[in-house]
């Protein structure tokens, strides 16, 4: 088959699109940076792609709250295309602002609680202001959870990635959290609960979640910022003799898993 095709969605204020593009290319995908206007106008068809990536940034300035305007735009102007994309078993990843968008569309965590069986996208969780009340740029240890998430299949049990956000505190009502746990939808947790190891005060130290199928994935940390060893903040401390097989950064596996899944299943 041809290389899996990734649509990297852009709009005003998207700013992690270039490195997300690099990540998918390194993983072996064919990529396209597409402005949402071109999807809405029909100039580009979402159905031509197998992976939808919503990168980090400040979509529309994060006016009102992070990601909400882009979420509303997607929900109301791309309703059918999005529903079809998901129904076709294709993959969606939202990173940082993209995660905020997915949560606000209701695509994540995609739980059934109080959904009344309708297919309408409803928001069940949120990403609130960090408990530190400020933007935080730092590297965090993540613990990979047992989950159906296809993006983290066979990934290392502990992963090191940077966060850079002001609104990253994942929080949801108790029943939603309980359902997430029951479905193993928590993909990554911050390794410890106390600040700054949990950089934003997330409930249950949640750093990333997937939908029940494992094909829609959102996370606050930035895997696209750790593609090679030299992105690691302490690479100068590694022994100089370290062998070259470790030149790959922790983040790349997430993109490779997505590409491999498409190759095997779609």
């Amino acid at each position: 088959m041809t290389e899996p095709k990734v649509l990297i969605l852009r709009t005003a204020g998207t700013n992690c699109d270039a490195e997300t593009d690099t990540a998918f290319q390194l993983a072996g995908a064919e990529t396209a940076l597409v402005h949402i206007q071109n999807l809405i106008s029909g100039k580009v068809n979402l159905s031509d792609y197998q992976i939808l990536a919503i990168p980090g940034g400040f979509s529309y300035g994060d006016d009102i709250s992070a990601g909400i305007l882009l979420a509303v735009e997607m929900k109301h102007k791309l309703t059918d295309a999005l529903n079809q994309f998901v129904a076709d078993g294709k993959l969606v990843i939202g990173i940082c602002n993209g995660f905020q968008v997915l949560v606000r569309t209701g695509l994540l965590p995609g739980v059934s609680t109080s959904n009344n069986g309708t297919s309408e996208m409803t928001q069940h969780a949120t990403l609130a202001m960090n408990t530190s009340a400020k933007f935080e740029c730092r590297w965090v240890d993540l613990e990979t959870q047992q989950s159906p998430c296809v993006f983290t299949k066979d990934i290392k049990p502990s992963v090191y990635l940077p966060v850079a956000h002001a609104e990253g505190r994942f929080t949801a009502p108790a029943d939603v959290l309980a359902e997430l746990e029951a479905n193993n939808q928590v993909v990554f947790r911050y390794a410890e609960s106390q600040y700054p190891r949990n950089p934003n005060g997330s409930d249950a130290d949640i750093a990333g979640v997937c939908d029940p199928t494992g094909r829609i994935f959102g996370l606050m940390p930035h895997p696209e910022r750790f593609l090679t060893k030299w992105n690691h903040p302490r690479w100068t401390r590694f022994a100089q003799t370290q062998d070259t097989t470790t030149e790959e950064g922790d983040g790349l596996a997430i993109f490779k898993n997505a590409v491999n899944y498409v190759k095997a299943n779609l």
Binding site: N15, C16, A18, E19, T22, G56, K134, F135, E136, C137, R138, W139, P162, A164, H222, E224, R225, L227, W230, N231, P233, R234, W235, T236, R237
Partner: peptide
């Protein structure tokens, strides 16, 4: 820490370094 120093994915020596970053 209030500045995003990692965006664009190209930073290889950070403004904060060392065993505890």
């Amino acid at each position: 820490r209030q500045y995003d120093h990692g965006v664009q994915g190209g930073v290889v020596i950070n403004p904060l370094v060392g065993v505890a970053n």
